[in-house]
């Protein structure tokens, strides 16, 4: 499954980051690398973008980009 499919409050472990070039590099460099645990914290009032938590900080990304991140759901 992909990151955008998580429900509010759920956690997932990153398996793979797709995409290419600078876009992918930036997502990786922000700490979204395979093995990282990510929580979907909430969505913006209009459903997009989403707010995610990882490594103790909070980022927002668009659903389009979240679809590039393959994850496995994790129970915590």
């Amino acid at each position: 499954m992909t990151l955008d499919k998580l429900k509010r409050g759920e956690w997932g472990e990153v398996l793979q980051v797709k995409g290419e070039g600078m876009t992918r590099l930036r997502m990786l460099e922000m700490g979204i690398v395979p093995g990282t645990e990510i929580q979907l914290r909430k969505a913006a009032p209009l459903g997009d973008p989403i707010e995610i938590g990882l490594r103790g900080y909070v980022l927002t990304i668009r659903r389009n980009d979240a679809r590039l991140i393959d994850i496995r759901r994790r129970m915590r």
Binding site: M27, L59, T60, I61, N64, D65
Partner: peptide, 9 residues
Amino acid sequence: KEPPFVLEL
């Protein structure tokens, strides 16, 4: 091409 919207809160 649209760049990713990576924004820190």
